[in-house]
Design a protein around this nucleic acid. Structure first.
Length: 969
RNA sequence: GCGCGGGUGGUGGAAUCGGUAGACACGAGGGACUUAAAAUCCCUUGGCCUUAACAGCCGUGCGGGUUCAAGUCCCGCCCCGCGCACCA
C-alpha cells in the first residue's frame, strides 16, 4: 500500500497545475456564470507571509475552488499593494530602494503562496506601483478633481514624527500612527483631500443592506457618525454678536444653563472682560500647549474658565454664562455648545465642578397607562421578597401625591440621594439606615422631583427604591398610615402599567442595591443621568410634549424666528491623501505661477515617479521629490509658462481603492478598465480580509460610488459579500511578532513533513472564521491524521477487487455520503468552514466502521469515496488531486464537477423519539418513521424507564412529531 | 463611559425553530499489533454518589422570570475581547 507523502505529491501537482494553467481564466469568455472572489492583496512589510495571512487567503481559495468545481467561471486573482508607507519603511529597514526591496521580497511571497496551493490566476498579477497601474490612479485623481472631489486646504492635521508625514484620520488609531505605533501630533499644513464627506450619507444608508460581517458595518457607521440635530443662534448679551451652537437635543433647549466654547473658537478673544481677561488668556495658552493627545489621555476631570460674558437663550430670553472648556472640540459642529447638565453626562460633570445650576426639562415617562397619582390610592412603597417571589405594597390613605414626596433634589444632589434624605429626614424611616445585602426585601416608592410643575399626570420622573432591614419590614407593617398587601409580578404590573411596569421596578431594585452600597460607605450614589426620551417639563408652551415631537416643534419655532435651523453633522472628515513621502503615486498637479494648481492632462499621464537614490524623508513639510529639480520644474500645461510639480505623493490607500476593478481588465492600455467587461464581472462576489475595516473598505466604497455616478461601473457597491476574518495568535495568546519570538512560519510546518493540506485543513477546522485561532502545535498533526485516514481508506478501496455488499450496508454508506455532500456544500456556502471539516471527519469515521463489512469496487463505495474527495478538494487540493488520479481519472478534480446529493437518501425509515417526563429525558424510543402520534404516545407510556416516573394519569402529553414526547405529571 | 461581540469539559470548539448539551478534534488513560519504539487500529474520557453495573442527582458566568421544555427567549448583574473614545 502506498503511503501518504505530502511533500512529494504537493510539489508534483503544483507544477502540473502551473504547466496546464489549471486556474487561468479567459476574462473575455462570458459563456459561463461568473464567480469573482479574492482576499485583500498582500502588502510587502516583511520578508514573507505569516500563518495568519495564510488563513486569510484560504477563505477565498476555498470559496472560489468550490465554485470552480460547481461549473462557474471562477476568477481568483492576486496582486500586490506595492505603494505606500509600509513598503517604503520596509525598504529603509533592509537598506534597499523601495522597488528593489519590494521585488526581492515578492519572490519569497510568491513562493510561499504557491507552496500553500492557492488557486490564483498568476497570469494576471497586478502591482499598484507599476506605472501602467498608477497612471490610472492618477487619472482617477483627475476625475475627482474635475468633479470638485479633490481639493487642497490648509488645516491642522495629524503628523507622524517618526514617519515624517501627515496621516488620514482613518490611519490614526487611538492617537497613534497605524504603521509605527508612535504618538502623532497636530500640525497646520496645506494638504490634498478627497471629499469623501460628500458621500457620507449615501454610504451610510447603503450600509445596512450589505452582506458584510456585522462588526465592519457597525464600525463604518460609527466612523461616519451621523448626528441629526440643529444649530441655534444665541445673542451675546449687550453686544451685537451671535454665537451658534450645534445640538442633537433641541428639545432640551430650555434646560441650557451655560454655553461652552472650545478654547480655539474664533470669538473667544472678544468675550473676555477686564476681570476675566488674564484667566481667559491663560486658559487658551494652556490648552494650545497641550496636544490633543494629552487632552485625550488626561483624566476626564473637566477644566474651564468663565469669560465674563453672557448669552441669551432665544427660546426664553434667559441669560446664561459663557465659558471656555476644552471638552468642547473646535473641529466638530460649530465648536460651541449649549450645556444641558440635567440631561447630558459631560455637561453634568462640568456643571457640578463649577457649581453651575441644573435644570430638569425632561421627565421620564413610565408609559401611557400609568394612572394619575391623584386617582391612585398609592402604590407608594413596595418591597420584594425573593423567597415568596412576591412584592409587598403599602397603600397610604391620606395623601394623593404619596406623602413621602416632599420635593425635588437639592442642588447637585442625585435622585437616589434625595430619596434617602427624604425617607430618613422627612418620612422618619429610621430603619433605612440599616441597609442590608443583596437579595433582601426591598422597599421603594415613586416620587416626583418637581412638585411645583404643572406636569402631566404621567410626568413621574424617577423611581427610587430603598433597601430596608428585616427589622424594617415589621416596622412598616405596623405603620399606621399604611395598609400592607402582597402581590405578584402580574398584579404589580396591573397596578403600575400593563406593559413593562414591573421592568421599571426591577431596574429600580438594581439601582437601589448600588445606592445602598454607596450609602453604607457614606458616599453619594451617582445614578445614570436621564438622557432618554420623555415628557417636557419647565419648557414654557412646550410642556407636556413628548421629546421626539418637541425636537421638531422647537426647531420649527427657531426657524420661524430666524434663530436656528435643522442641521446634520458627521464625525467623518475628508480623506487626507497627500503624503510627504517618496514611495507613492505622484499627485498629478503642477503649480503654475499664473494659473495656480493645474491638473496634468490625461494624455500626459502617468506622471512617473523619478528614480531617487536617497529616498528617505528629510523631515519638514515636503517629500524628497522637492529635491529632484529637473522633475519638479516643468511647463504649465495650460499656459506653457514655468511651473512646479506637486511634490506630495498619494496615500497608498488610494492605490488599493480600485484594484479590484483593474483585476477585471489588467492589460488594458487605453482605459483603467473596460466598462463592458466590468459589467460582466462585477460586483466582487466574495472578498475577505482581517484588517482595514474602515480605511480601505470605506475608501473603496466611496470611489465605487463615484465611478457609478459617472457610469463607469455597473454597481454602486464594490463587494457583494465581505467576510471579515480573524487572525491566528501565537500559542501564548499574543499577537505573533518577531520581537516576541513566537512567530509560526507556515513554510516550516509544511516542510517538516505535514505539507500544505494538513495546515490548510487545520486552519479551517480550528475555529469559525470570525474568531481568532490560538496556535496549537498539536493541531496540524491532528488534521494530518485525518488526511492519512482518507488516504488509507482510498488505498484499501483501490487495492480490493469488486465487492458484494449487503444491501443494508450499501444503503448506509450512501446515506452518509449524501448527507455529507449536502452538509459540506451548505457549510461552504454559509462560510462555516470549521463544521464542514468536522462533517467530513465524521463521514470518514463512519466509513472506517462500515469497511469492516467489506470495501472495494461497488456503486456505494465508489460514490462515497469520489464524493468525499470532491467536497474535500477545496480544503486539501493536493491529496484529493493525487487520489483522484489514482482512481483512474485523467481530468483534474478541481474542474471536474461537484457531487449532487439525492434527498431520497436523507430520509430515514426509523426515528429516534425522546421521551421526557416533566421535561427531563427518561427514555429514547426507536420508532418507524410512519408511526402515528397515538402509536408513539402508547409506546412512550408503556416504556419501563418512563413508568418509574409516572404514576396515575398524566396531566398533559406534549408531542412533537418525530422528535419527542413530554409527559407532564 | 458608549457601541458591538462573547462567557459551554483539562483544551479548541459543536448544538436551523426553545426539544437527546458537549458533535468533531486535541490532550489524557487503557488495549491490540511490534523484539522495541514510532506509525496505525480499537475502547474510555463533564462532575457527584456507588466496589461496579444499572439507575439516579448536578451541570452551558451569576440571580430572577416566561414555558410542558431554556445554552438558546425576557429582566437585572458580573466578567472577558474588540471598536470608538469629551463628536454635544
Amino acid at each position: 500500500m502506498k503511503r501518504y507523502n505530502p511533500t512529494e505529491i504537493e510539489q508534483k501537482w503544483q507544477e502540473k497545475w502551473e504547466q496546464d494553467g489549471t486556474y487561468a481564466l479567459d476574462l473575455s469568455d462570458h459563456s459561463k456564470s461568473k464567480y469573482f472572489g479574492f482576499s485583500m492583496l498582500p502588502g510587502i512589510t516583511g520578508a514573507g507571509i505569516h500563518i495568519g495571512h495564510g488563513r486569510t487567503y484560504q477563505f477565498s481559495d476555498i470559496k472560489v475552488r468550490a465554485k470552480r468545481q460547481q461549473g462557474y467561471a471562477a476568477y481568483h486573482p492576486i496582486g500586490w499593494d506595492s505603494f505606500g508607507l509600509p513598503v517604503e519603511n520596509y525598504a529603509i529597514k533592509v537598506g534597499k530602494k523601495p522597488r528593489d526591496a519590494h521585488d526581492d521580497a515578492k519572490v519569497n511571497f510568491k513562493k510561499q503562496l504557491k507552496r500553500l496551493g492557492f488557486s490564483y490566476d498568476w497570469s494576471k498579477e497586478v502591482s499598484t506601483a507599476d506605472p501602467e497601474y498608477y497612471k490610472w490612479t492618477q487619472w482617477i485623481f483627475n476625475k475627482l478633481y474635475e468633479h470638485d472631489l479633490a481639493y487642497q486646504k490648509e488645516s491642522p492635521q495629524w503628523w507622524c514624527e517618526t514617519d515624517q508625514t501627515v496621516l488620514a484620520n482613518e490611519q490614526v488609531e487611538g492617537g497613534k500612527c497605524w504603521r509605527c505605533g508612535n504618538q502623532v501630533v497636530k500640525k497646520n499644513l496645506k494638504q490634498w483631500f478627497f471629499r469623501i464627506t460628500a458621500y457620507a450619507d449615501e454610504i451610510l444608508e447603503a450600509t445596512d443592506d450589505l452582506n458584510w460581517t456585522d462588526s465592519v458595518k457597525v464600525m463604518q457607521k460609527n466612523w461616519i457618525g451621523k448626528s441629526v440635530g440643529a444649530e441655534v443662534d444665541f445673542k451675546v448679551d449687550g453686544r451685537d454678536a451671535t454665537i451658534t451652537v450645534f445640538t442633537t437635543r433641541p428639545d432640551t433647549l430650555f434646560g441650557a444653563t451655560v454655553m461652552v466654547l472650545a478654547p480655539e473658537h474664533p470669538m473667544v478673544k472678544t468675550l473676555a472682560t477686564a476681570d476675566t481677561e488674564t484667566a481667559v488668556k491663560a486658559y487658551i495658552t494652556e490648552s494650545a500647549r497641550k496636544s490633543e493627545i494629552e487632552r485625550m489621555n488626561e483624566t476626564r476631570e473637566k477644566t474651564g474658565v468663565f469669560t465674563g460674558s453672557y448669552a441669551i437663550n432665544p427660546v426664553n430670553g434667559e441669560r446664561i454664562p459663557i465659558w471656555l472648556a476644552d471638552y468642547v472640540l473646535a473641529g466638530y459642529g460649530t465648536g460651541a455648545i449649549m450645556a444641558v447638565p440635567a440631561h447630558d453626562e459631560r455637561d453634568f460633570a462640568f456643571a457640578e465642578k463649577f457649581k453651575i445650576s441644573v435644570k430638569d426639562v425632561v421627565a421620564q415617562d413610565f408609559g401611557d397607562e400609568l394612572p394619575d397619582p391623584k386617582e391612585v390610592e398609592g402604590v407608594v412603597v413596595i418591597g420584594y421578597d425573593p423567597n415568596t417571589k412576591k412584592f409587598m405594597g403599602l397603600k397610604n390613605g391620606h395623601n394623593n401625591r404619596g406623602w413621602l414626596v416632599a420635593g425635588g433634589r437639592e442642588e447637585g444632589e442625585t435622585f437616589e440621594h434625595a430619596a434617602y434624605r427624604e425617607l430618613r429626614e422627612e418620612a422618619g424611616f429610621a430603619q433605612v439606615e440599616a441597609m442590608i445585602p443583596l437579595g433582601a426585601p426591598v422597599y421603594s416608592y415613586y416620587f416626583n422631583s418637581n412638585k411645583q410643575s404643572n406636569r402631566r399626570s404621567k410626568g413621574y420622573n424617577f423611581l427610587a427604591i430603598i433597601n430596608a432591614s428585616d427589622q424594617g419590614e415589621t416596622d412598616l407593617e405596623a405603620h399606621e398610615d399604611f395598609e400592607v398587601y402582597w402581590d405578584t409580578v402580574e398584579g404589580l404590573r396591573e397596578r403600575t402599567n400593563p406593559d413593562g411596569g414591573a421592568d421599571h421596578w426591577m431596574e429600580g431594585i438594581e439601582r437601589a442595591r448600588h445606592a445602598a452600597k454607596a450609602y453604607d460607605k457614606g458616599e453619594r450614589y451617582q445614578a445614570p443621568l436621564y438622557h432618554g426620551e420623555g415628557i417636557l417639563i419647565n419648557s414654557g408652551t412646550f410642556d407636556g410634549m413628548r421629546t421626539e415631537e418637541a425636537r421638531e416643534e422647537i426647531v420649527a419655532w427657531l426657524e420661524q424666528q430666524g434663530v436656528g435651523r435643522s442641521k446634520v453633522t458627521y464625525k467623518m472628515r475628508d480623506w487626507l491623501i497627500s503624503r510627504q513621502r517618496y514611495w507613492g503615486a505622484p499627485i498629478p498637479i503642477v503649480h503654475c505661477e499664473k494659473d495656480g494648481a493645474v491638473p496634468v492632462p490625461d494624455d500626459q499621464l502617468p506622471v512617473v515617479l523619478p528614480d531617487v537614490d536617497d529616498f528617505k524623508p528629510r523631515g519638514g513639510a515636503t517629500s524628497v521629490l522637492a529635491e529632484v529639480e529637473d522633475w519638479v520644474n516643468t511647463a504649465c500645461p495650460t499656459c506653457g509658462g514655468p511651473a512646479k510639480r506637486e511634490t506630495d505623493t498619494m496615500d497608498g490607500y488610494a492605490c488599493s481603492s480600485w484594484y479590484f476593478l483593474r483585476y477585471i481588465d489588467p492589460f488594458n492600455t487605453k482605459q483603467a478598465w473596460n466598462p463592458e467587461v466590468e459589467s460582466h464581472w462585477s460586483p466582487v462576489d466574495f472578498y475577505n480580509g482581517a484588517d482595514h475595516a474602515v480605511a480601505h473598505l470605506l475608501y473603496s466604497r466611496f470611489w465605487q460610488r463615484f465611478f457609478y455616478k459617472l457610469g463607469l461601473v455597473s454597481h454602486p457597491e464594490p463587494f457583494k459579500r465581505m467576510m471579515y476574518n480573524a487572525y491566528v495568535l501565537a500559542s501564548d495568546g499574543q499577537k505573533m511578532s518577531k520581537s516576541k519570538g513566537n512567530v509560526v512560519d507556515p513554510m516550516e510546518i509544511m516542510e517538516s513533513g505535514y505539507g500544505a493540506d494538513s495546515l490548510r485543513v487545520y486552519e479551517m477546522f480550528a475555529a469559525p472564521y470570525e474568531q481568532e485561532i490560538i496556535w496549537d502545535p498539536n493541531g496540524v498533526p491532528g488534521t494530518y491524521r485525518f488526511l492519512n485516514r482518507v488516504w488509507n481508506l482510498t488505498q484499501e478501496y483501490l487495492e480490493a477487487e469488486s465487492v458484494e455488499l449487503d444491501e443494508k450496508v450499501a444503503t448506509n454508506i450512501l446515506k452518509i455520503a449524501h448527507k455529507t455532500v449536502k452538509k459540506v456544500t451548505d457549510d461552504i456556502e454559509n462560510d462555516k468552514f470549521n463544521t464542514a471539516v468536522s462533517t467530513m471527519m465524521e463521514a470518514v469515521n463512519s466509513y472506517y466502521k462500515l469497511k469492516e463489512s467489506g470495501i472495494g469496487t461497488s456503486d456505494a463505495w465508489t460514490f462515497a469515496i469520489e464524493s468525499l474527495l470532491k467536497v474535500l478538494a477545496p480544503f486539501a487540493p493536493h491529496i484529493t488531486e493525487e487520489l483522484w488520479s489514482q482512481l483512474g481519472h485523467d481530468t483534474t478534480i478541481h474542474v471536474d464537477g461537484w457531487p449532487k446529493w439525492d434527498d431520497a437518501y436523507l430520509q430515514t425509515d426509523e426515528l429516534i423519539v425522546i421521551v421526557q417526563v416533566n421535561g427531563k429525558l427518561r427514555a429514547k424510543l426507536t420508532v418507524p418513521a410512519d408511526s402515528t402520534e397515538g402509536d408513539v404516545k402508547v409506546r412512550a407510556l408503556s416504556n419501563e424507564a418512563v413508568q418509574k416516573f409516572v404514576s396515575g394519569e398524566p396531566k398533559k402529553i406534549i408531542y412533537v412529531p418525530g422528535r419527542l414526547v413530554n409527559i407532564v405529571i
